Deep mutational scan, measured.
Amino acid sequence: TLFEALYDYEARTEDDLSFHKGEKFQILNSSEGDWWEARSLTTGETGYIPSIYLAPV
């Protein structure tokens, strides 16, 4: 399942991933609670993103 960003997000740590509204992600690991490891389909970068900023596509 792909997810789309509902809002912009600016990374706060080196493990976080910055993204823009409308960016799409492949989720790599969603077992860490509210922060999911994801790969951006726009940039190819991976990192942790807040799941509350996402909606399934």
Rank of each mutant, 00 (worst) to 15 (best):
K24D: 01
T1S: 11
I52D: 11
E14V: 12
S40R: 14
L41K: 04
T13C: 15
P50R: 13
G33D: 12
Y9E: 01
T13W: 13
D34R: 07
T1R: 11
L6F: 04
E14M: 12
K24T: 09
I49D: 00
G33H: 12
L2C: 08
N29I: 06
Q26P: 00
W36I: 05
S18P: 06
G44K: 05
Y7T: 09
E4C: 09
I52A: 15
E45A: 13
A11L: 02
P56F: 07
S51R: 14
E23M: 06
A38N: 00
S30G: 10
S31A: 11
R12C: 13
T13P: 05
L2F: 11
Y9K: 04
E45G: 08
P50E: 07
D8I: 02
L41S: 04
D16K: 15
S18V: 03
P50S: 09
E23K: 01
K24C: 08
D34P: 09
G44V: 01
T42C: 10
E32H: 14
T1N: 12
Q26W: 14
S40D: 02
G33L: 11
S31M: 13
A5S: 06
L54C: 04
S40G: 02
L6W: 05
V57P: 04
S30R: 13
K24F: 11
L17H: 03
Q26R: 09
Q26K: 09
G47C: 03
E32G: 14
A38F: 03
S51A: 14
A11S: 12
N29K: 08
P56G: 05
I49R: 00
A5V: 01
T43E: 01
Q26A: 09
S40C: 07
I27V: 10
A55K: 13
G44H: 07
Y48D: 02
A11E: 03
D8W: 05
I27A: 02
E23V: 03
S30V: 11
D8C: 08
D8F: 05
V57I: 11
P50T: 04
Q26N: 07
D34W: 12
S51N: 07
T1L: 13
F3D: 00
E37L: 15
I52Q: 13
W35H: 07
L41I: 08
F19E: 00
Y7E: 09
E14I: 11
W35M: 13
Y48P: 02
I52C: 14
T1Y: 12
I49N: 00
D15K: 15
A55L: 08
F3M: 08
E32N: 15
T13I: 07
E4R: 08
S51I: 09
I52H: 13
S31I: 10
I27Y: 02
T43A: 02
T43R: 04
S40W: 01
P50Y: 14
L41Y: 06
T46Y: 08
K21Q: 08
I52N: 14
Y48G: 03
D8A: 08
H20G: 08
S18Y: 03
L28K: 05
A38M: 07
A11K: 09
I49H: 00
W36D: 00
E4D: 02
S30N: 12
P50N: 14
T13A: 11
I49W: 01
N29H: 07
S31P: 09
D16E: 15
H20I: 11
E4F: 15
S51C: 11
G33C: 10
G44D: 06
L2W: 09
T46W: 08
L41D: 03
E4L: 10
Y9V: 03
T42Y: 10
E10C: 12
T42E: 14
E10K: 13
L2S: 04
Y7H: 10
R12T: 13
F19A: 06
P56V: 09
G33W: 10
A5R: 00
W36C: 03
E32V: 10
H20C: 10
E4T: 09
Q26T: 11
S51W: 13
L2N: 05
D15V: 14
R39H: 05
D8Q: 05
L41H: 05
D15F: 15
E32S: 14
T43K: 03
N29P: 04
P50H: 14
S40Q: 05
S30E: 08
F19W: 02
G22E: 02
T42W: 13
A55Q: 12
G33T: 13
E23H: 07
G22Y: 06
S18D: 04
P50F: 13
G44W: 07
N29M: 07
E10W: 10
F3T: 02
T13N: 13
I27G: 01
Y7N: 08
P56L: 09
A11P: 05
G44R: 05
L54H: 01
D15G: 15
E32Y: 12
E45Y: 10
P56W: 06
A38Y: 04
D34I: 12
R12H: 10
G22L: 03
E37A: 08
E14D: 13
S31R: 10
E37W: 15
E23C: 05
G47E: 01
G47H: 06
K21T: 07
S30Q: 12
G33M: 12
D15C: 15
L2H: 06
W36Q: 02
L6V: 08
E4I: 15
H20V: 13
E32R: 15
F3P: 00
A5M: 01
I52E: 11
N29T: 08
V57Q: 05
S18T: 09
S31G: 10
T1D: 12
A11Q: 07
D15I: 14
W35R: 14
D34M: 13
N29W: 08
L54D: 00
E23T: 07
N29G: 09
S40M: 05
E10F: 10
L28P: 02
F3L: 03
D16I: 13
D8R: 05
T13F: 15
I27K: 04
R12S: 12
T1Q: 13
K21G: 03
D16V: 15
T46E: 08
Y7P: 00
L2G: 02
Q26V: 14
F3W: 15
T1F: 13
Y7R: 11
Y7I: 12
E32M: 14
L2K: 04
E45C: 12
D16W: 10
N29F: 08
R39W: 07
Y53S: 07
G47N: 03
G33I: 11
L41F: 07
T46S: 09
E32Q: 14
E10H: 12
I49M: 03
W36T: 02
W35A: 06
R39A: 05
R39Q: 08
S30M: 15
D34V: 10
Y53T: 04
T13G: 15
E10M: 12
G44F: 07
G44Q: 06
S31D: 12
K24Q: 12
I27H: 01
D8G: 07
I49E: 00
Y7K: 09
S31E: 10
G33E: 11
L2T: 08
R39C: 07
G44S: 05
G22P: 00
R39S: 05
A55S: 10
S30F: 15
L41M: 12
L17A: 02
H20K: 15
T42R: 14
T1C: 11
L17P: 02
S30D: 12
E10R: 11
K21V: 09
L54Q: 01
L54R: 00
G33F: 10
G44Y: 06
L28G: 02
Y9C: 04
Y48T: 07
W36H: 01
N29D: 12
I49K: 00
L6T: 06
S31T: 12
N29L: 06
F19L: 07
E32A: 13
Y9W: 08
F19D: 00
S40Y: 02
K21F: 05
F19T: 04
I27F: 03
T13L: 10
Y9L: 04
L17M: 15
E23Q: 07
Y7C: 13
F25V: 02
Y48W: 15
P50C: 13
I27M: 03
W35Q: 07
L54F: 10
R39P: 00
E37M: 15
F3Q: 03
F3K: 01
A5W: 01
G33V: 12
E32C: 13
G47P: 00
T1E: 11
I49V: 15
W36K: 02
T42V: 11
T13Y: 15
E23S: 05
